[in-house]
């Protein structure tokens, strides 16, 4: 884990650069100009109360949500939209699909494909998006299933796995695609308390390997331990960000102080 703090400074080597991101649903503005920069190897965690825009921000990065203003650059490529004669134009579906493959995402509800085995869930993207040969895809998928401790369950269907196991397969499915950035959207929120640990330890292991990760979580202790930078969001804006120790121990914003108190961290 490299301890390079995320900052709002413009750096040319930044892996992810978000500038002035605006997102609205009809009249409701959910992101009101968000700036965020991540370097390779950074682990950044978004915290904040529900409705603050954390999940929406995460989903804009892989275009699961459209956004109306601002830019997202991932490895220098403009995500979602580009400019043609000064006009903002949405990329073609194929370009968006290619950009999406640059990020991996794990969801709150796992979203494994129920008609495919654990192994097939992981190989699908490798075969159809990465166009790997079947043998190669299987070797890679087995490697990642082993990494999340589920090689023995490779031929099980999602319905035969526990919530924690399903989430670990979902993480393997995303990671096997070798994304340059992993997005984790409240991956433990739907799990029974005793299953949370196994998923968090997988994520921790990935962080130790230097994986660049952007997380949304309510697990404050985990966020504190795993993150280089904590970003506190409030009402569609970044209210405060910095190293976990600073944020948790010396919050500047009264809202963050209040939020931390309410989470009993």
């Amino acid at each position: 884990m490299t301890h390079v703090a995320a900052s709002t400074q413009n750096t040319s080597q930044a892996l992810l650069e978000i500038r002035g991101l605006h997102k609205q649903y009809g009249q409701l503005e959910v992101l009101k100009g968000v700036d965020l920069t991540m370097q390779r190897g950074n682990v950044v965690t978004l915290i904040g109360s529900s409705g603050s825009g954390k999940t929406t921000l995460l989903r804009c990065v892989n275009m699961l949500e459209e956004f109306q203003g601002g830019r997202i650059l991932l490895e220098g490529e403009s995500i979602g939209y580009h400019e043609v004669n000064g006009k903002r134009v949405r990329h073609s579906e194929n370009v968006i699909a290619r950009h999406r493959a640059m990020t991996g995402m794990a969801f709150q509800q796992f979203n494994l494909f129920p008609h495919l085995t654990a192994l097939q869930n992981v190989t699908l993207g490798l075969l159809k998006v990465k166009k790997l040969h079947k043998d190669e895809a299987v070797v890679l998928a087995e490697k990642w299933l082993e990494r999340v401790g589920l090689l023995a369950r490779r031929d099980h269907f999602p319905g035969q796995l526990s919530g924690g196991q399903q989430q670990r397969v979902a993480i393997a499915r995303a990671i096997a695609m070798k994304p340059s950035l992993m997005l984790f959207d409240e991956v433990t929120s739907a799990l029974d308390p005793e299953l949370v640990g196994e998923v968090l330890s997988v994520i921790k292991g990935l962080a130790e390997d230097g994986m660049t990760m952007l997380l949304v979580t309510h697990e404050m202790r985990f966020a504190f331990e795993v993150s280089d930078t904590i970003v506190f969001m409030n009402q569609g804006r970044i209210e405060e960000q910095g190293p976990p120790k600073d944020l948790f121990e010396r919050p500047q914003s009264p809202r963050l102080a209040e939020f931390l108190k309410s989470t009993r961290f």
């Binding site: 699909a97 995402m105 509800q109 979203n111 499915r173």
Partner: peptide, 25 residues
């Protein structure tokens, strides 16, 4: 809805998602 989202998230195009994920289910 998560099925389409998960398909998109691994980079499948709409028609791939339809053919490999949604229609079989």
């Amino acid at each position: 809805r998560g099925q389409m989202e998960a398909s998109k998230a691994i980079g499948l195009t709409f028609y791939q998602a339809l053919g490999y994920v949604l229609l079989p289910q």
